[in-house]
């Protein structure tokens, strides 16, 4: 699964580069607009080690941010599954918070938390948590009647059991959205770094943008892509291991 992901990413990346190069040579554009293969190669050699560390830094924040967002989505989604006033209130609050664009909230976050690690983490978690929350809310508020019926009519149903049943029955959905949200966590962290941070690949991309250095941006994209493919692949693999352990199936 993992090598296939990386191979597919390389194919897409290569295709993108080929399109850019065909643009470059088709329109006879300078290296300033689109860097040539030589510039790309030289830039890659020059910035690869530094950018690799930056991506690693970003990934660490994204990872913690994703864990945070999963915890947050579960913390909101589980009480929010009920049709009580409190459940509806939680849902409305969650939707409202998400309705604000992160760039509008970011300055408030920076004023409160500064422009360091915490701000990056919070923004990453905020961008990443909503799709997880939607899935958790969807999964948790949908009864699995055929399984739950026995526990309900015999008075054995407790909220923990209800959550367990619904999570188990929708395990594939949950693991898929968690693996998918890795992209959002990474994107969220990069956005945070881009808006305000002194570290990470988003910060390096911002500097490259200031200098109109597309070659550096392309190298950064390559590293982000590789990193994300590996991360997502590992998440999917972990998801299938969890599923296997829980369901006992291969």
């Amino acid at each position: 699964m993992l090598p296939r992901r990386i191979y597919q990413f390389f194919l897409i990346y290569l295709l993108g580069i080929l399109v850019l190069l065909s643009l470059k040579y088709g329109l006879q554009l300078s290296d300033y607009v689109i860097p040539g293969p030589k510039t790309l190669w030289q830039t890659a050699l020059e910035v690869f080690p530094r950018y690799a560390l930056d991506v690693w830094n970003t990934l660490q924040v994204a990872l913690i941010g994703q864990v945070m967002s999963i915890v947050l989505a579960l913390a909101i989604g589980i009480p929010g599954r009920s049709t009580t006033w409190f459940g509806n209130f939680i849902k409305a609050a969650a939707y409202n918070v998400q309705a604000y664009p992160i760039v509008a909230i970011a300055p408030i976050i920076f004023i409160l938390l500064g422009d360091g690690f915490l701000s990056r983490l919070l923004i990453a978690a905020m961008i990443c948590y909503f799709p997880i929350l939607l899935t958790v809310l969807g999964v948790m508020s949908e009864p699995v009647a055929d399984v739950e019926h026995f526990y309900r009519c015999t008075g054995r149903m407790r909220w923990q059991l209800e959550v367990k049943i619904r999570a188990f029955e929708n395990l594939h959905k949950l693991t898929t959205v968690i693996a998918g949200s890795a992209t959002l966590a990474m994107a969220g962290t990069i956005v945070a770094e881009f808006i305000a941070a002194n570290a990470g690949i988003g910060y390096s991309i911002r500097i490259a943008l200031y200098q109109s250095d597309l070659a550096r941006i392309l190298v950064a994209l390559l590293l982000i892509g590789i990193c994300l493919s590996v991360y997502q692949g590992l998440l999917e693999h972990t998801g299938s291991l969890v599923k296997k352990a829980w369901t006992g199936s291969a």
Binding site: D31, Y32, V33, T39
Partner: peptide, 27 residues
């Protein structure tokens, strides 16, 4: 500067460092 080369703009305003950087890359 990028727009000038791509033909989306005919004139543009840029600071000297931007121009020098672009010229260094063949713009």
């Amino acid at each position: 500067l990028r727009e000038l080369e791509l033909g989306y703009a005919d004139f543009g305003v840029a600071s000297a460092d931007q121009v020098i950087r672009a010229v260094a890359k063949g713009a």
